[in-house]
Design a protein around this nucleic acid. Structure first.
Lengths: 339, 339
DNA sequence: TTGAAAGCGCTAACAT
DNA sequence: ATGTTAGCGCTTTCAA
């Protein structure tokens, strides 16, 4: 493997000059530069970023720490979209991407902070981390520049990107209320996700604004899981047949609710309206096509990377980015026939 | 940031001893080790992998070079499944993953070899690279250990994992022939993919074995693209209304063909049978559900990583891994009514 | 069992 | 415009 030392020898200059020439410094004779460049090319020189990073104390690497990069996460490819977006921005930014992944089941032997420090990443983007994850706090409290996805924590070194989950949920529920539904259930995610809290808030707000009472028994947790949502919905729709609409905190869970409804021979949308959240690919393919709150997850990834790089360069205007969402009306919602 | 020097100072030993203690060498007094470990923990020491990699000339990093990590690739999340599989294996192997991505549209300023050398990856897995990509050859000809996905090139430093595409295609076409179809078209991918060639071979073989002639005009290229496949199918089915079945080299293209058939008011499967390839998520959700040749892409990723790590450790038995595939019969194929 | 010293490939003062 | 020197944090001879 060629080093600048080799180049220096062949070109008959010092390593300093080689370094300067290669890095485009101005204080090097044009002829010398030409010569060095030629030798570098001839020797097929590739700079050793390890050495450079070591001495510059900057790796030009950003970490992407995700949870749920598993076989099963292909259906709801949230993680993939984030990754694509991050990658898209980073590929034009001079930073490389190293991927750290974690699963909620298996506890890591190293903390996220250690992971980042060992690899000397310049910053990290985190997605899918539960809010009760102790390693999360550790990173946030450390001096590692960090962008969180859907976790609203901000500090000097921490920023986040999210969507307006309150308004998203509100739009969904308002839509149902406008269709005449008064008995609306909610299948929420788990308590360790900020989005769940926000979406519940939106659910509440929409009801209050229209002066429609909320029945707490109709709010259940589907743990962001299709099967769990199905089980919960089965129970819910059996116990409370008066329910005419369900708002789900994710499309995946909405899929589960649809299954439950089918099992109970409840027709969608004539007997039961369903609204999801996310607008995953499947949402427009299932039958009936799912009305849902669309968020641009790819864009969230892209913006996260952009924000982090700006933070690293010290020119981030704000550490908070909130993206819009949009209610997509499809076939799973209809007028309430009871009214 | 704490270094071994700091630890040495506090513990009152030399850096050599610290290094040895931390790396679990046996020739260090147990009491000294305890002391060093305690100090390391107290000082929140994280080893600098950059420095270690530099001196050991080994980064414990493997690169994943993919093409098509784009917003649009969410539908056919081949890349994501590969990534998940690779990540799954690697997360238990001591290697970190750095992601390189390329798009066919934008030509990279650096060759893949340069990318690998600069980051000093120990090896690289490549997916989605076209066979005519000059950078591919460069990597293969280099001394960088490399595992290719679906590109059958083997050498001392190069291995590959693929599925048996000939048999896969054969199964699909045999299925159609057994249903009485004699006029079978094929919508293939592009010529720069080995899988296309293999699947065409399988298509041919199945015909020959059953003594059914192949009409070359019925073999078109859909470029692995849904829209292009739709266009081609529109033309094909219009020009040759005698066709009763179509074998597609990917599910995505099959989706395009289904659209074309719908536009032409050709019913599937009564008037036209369609078989896809891949078994993407959508395959079981579209209507009619798609009969297809399933390949375990996650497993391909997992096995690639396993193979590469074995190669790096010098204990790879073979550099070639061929996985099985399976014909999944769903609703898009039926008996040929013309016979 | 421990330490001193050299060096991995690079950059960055500080001369000249 | 170019070279000398030191040093980033680590591992690894070699000696003690």
């Amino acid at each position: 493997m060629t080093t600048i030392k080799d180049i220096a020898k062949v070109a008959g200059v010092s390593v300093t000059t080689v370094s300067r020439a290669l890095n485009g410094y101005s204080d090097v004779n044009e002829k010398t530069r030409q010569k060095i460049m030629a030798v570098a090319k001839e020797l097929k020189y590739s700079p050793n970023t390890l050495a450079r990073s070591l001495v510059m104390n900057k790796s030009n690497t950003i970490g992407l720490l995700v949870s749920g990069l598993t076989r099963s996460s292909a259906k709801d490819n949230f993680t993939f979209k984030i990754l694509s977006g991050v990658n898209e921005y980073l590929s034009n930014s001079g930073y490389d991407l190293v991927l750290f992944s974690t699963t909620s089941t298996k506890q890591r032997e190293k903390t996220y902070t250690e992971l980042c420090r060992e690899r000397r990443v310049d910053g990290v983007i985190m997605q899918g981390i539960k809010t009760d994850d102790p390693y999360l706090i550790e990173v946030v409290d450390s001096d590692i520049p960090c962008v969180l996805i859907d976790i609203p924590i901000e500090s000097d070194t921490v920023g986040y990107v999210t969507t307006d989950n309150i308004s998203g949920a509100k739009k969904a529920v308002q839509h149902l209320l406008e269709l005449g539904h008064k008995k609306i259930a909610m299948v929420n995610g788990h308590e360790f996700a900020f989005v769940s809290k926000r979406r519940l808030e939106g659910f509440m707000e929409a009801h209050h604004e229209m002066n429609v009472p909320v029945n707490p028994s109709w709010i259940v947790s589907g743990a962001f899981d299709e099967d769990e949502a199905e089980r919960q919905a089965l129970k819910l729709l059996t116990d409370f047949p008066e329910i005419t609409a369900v708002f789900c905190a994710s499309d995946l869970m909405a899929l589960g609710v649809i299954k439950a409804a089918k099992k109970l021979k409840i027709d969608i949308p004539t007997q039961l309206s369903i609204v999801g959240y996310d607008d995953i690919l499947l949402a427009s393919y299932v039958s009936p096509a799912l009305t849902t709150v669309a968020q641009d997850i790819y864009q969230m990834g892209y913006k996260s990377a952009e924000l982090l790089v700006q933070m690293l360069q010290g020119d981030a205007v704000s550490h908070i980015i909130t993206l819009e969402n949009e209610l997509k009306m499809r076939e799973s919602t209809a007028k309430n026939h009871d009214c």
